[in-house]
Design a binder for these strands. Structure first.
Length: 283
DNA sequence: AAGTGTCCCTGCGAGC
DNA sequence: TGCTCGCAGGGACACT
């Protein structure tokens, strides 16, 4: 499930593959609802002949800045994958391809997405799409983070998943950050002491940075798990401490990790390290 | 404002 | 082996 570290990894891998500088010679749409805007015929027409100028990330969005200028925005949602083929690779669409782009260097870029939740936009300016996105979690200051927590009275888990609060965190890294910070997912955001708030920010940044360093978290098997554009796997799964660890001993206290449901999402918590009602403030 | 439920989708693992 | 069933979940939206 691509979150900030996976999206960052995709952008890095596309850049390393030398995508910047290539020109799109044709776009093919195999599942029309993937294109959020503009309409399919215009999407194809407007892309032809544009050069890829820069690749970037904002929240969970991949930004492909094009000559013109224009920006191609890609959101992978659950199972979206960008794949870059070598020039001698097969050019026929594969089973889960939703959009493909032919490049002038002979390569093909594919957007594959088994569950069809991913979306792509071609826009003159990306900013309007970011109007409701919160700040980047790797850039927010301690002070600003504390103030934002105190300004709300929401459970921590749904708040971390809310992209208008912070942009880029999903279910895996939310659970990892809360475990790392010793905080229960149902703690209210305005109940945190300054030390706890600071600890949470540090934990968020640590788990995201570790995810990036490990090239993202690849889960499960088959078509639905995360891969880099050139086919490599992320190796962050082996570093997970809470997510998907139900029944396994917490690496800090050996208490089995339990799975609860919070805001319709499976949530993994150490019942001992992450008490809902802490006896008193520590540190 | 916060929380819940529903929808979109389909591969996959579990159970029979 | 082959079937059915329920789970996985990001984000938009309706509703309480």
């Amino acid at each position: 499930m691509p979150e900030l570290p996976e999206v960052e990894t995709v952008v890095h891998d596309l850049t390393a593959a030398g995508l910047v500088g290539a020109t799109i010679t044709a776009a093919r749409i195999l599942w029309a609802p993937t294109i959020a805007s503009p309409r399919a015929d215009r999407f194809r027409r407007d892309l032809r002949g544009r050069r890829i100028v820069r690749l970037a990330r904002r929240g969970k969005f991949i930004l492909m800045e094009l000559s013109g200028p224009a920006t191609l925005l890609i959101h992978l949602r659950m199972t979206g994958r960008l794949q870059i083929d070598t020039p001698d690779g097969p050019s026929a669409p594969r089973r889960f391809d939703r959009v493909t782009w032919q490049l002038d260097d002979g390569r093909m870029l594919r957007f594959a997405d088994p569950r069809k939740f991913g979306r792509i936009w071609l826009v003159p300016r990306p900013e309007p799409l970011f109007a409701r996105l919160g700040p980047e979690p790797l850039e927010i200051s301690t002070r600003s983070f504390r103030e934002k927590l105190a300004a709300r009275s929401r459970a921590l888990k749904p708040l971390l998943l809310d992209q208008s609060f912070l942009a880029g965190i999903g279910n895996i890294y939310a659970d990892e950050a809360l475990w790392t910070a010793h905080l229960h997912p149902l703690r209210k955001s305005d109940s945190l002491s300054p030390a706890e708030a600071s600890r949470l920010r540090t934990a968020i940044q640590a788990v995201l940075r570790r995810g990036i360093r490990n090239l993202g978290t690849s889960l499960g098997s088959g078509q639905t798990h995360f891969r880099l554009p050139r086919g490599a796997h992320g190796r962050n799964r082996e570093h997970l401490q809470a997510y998907g660890q139900t029944g396994r001993p917490c690496s800090r206290c050996q208490t089995p990790i339990t799975r609860i449901r919070v805001a319709q999402r499976s949530t993994h918590v150490c019942p001992r390290c992450q008490p809902l009602h802490p006896p008193r403030y520590r540190e």
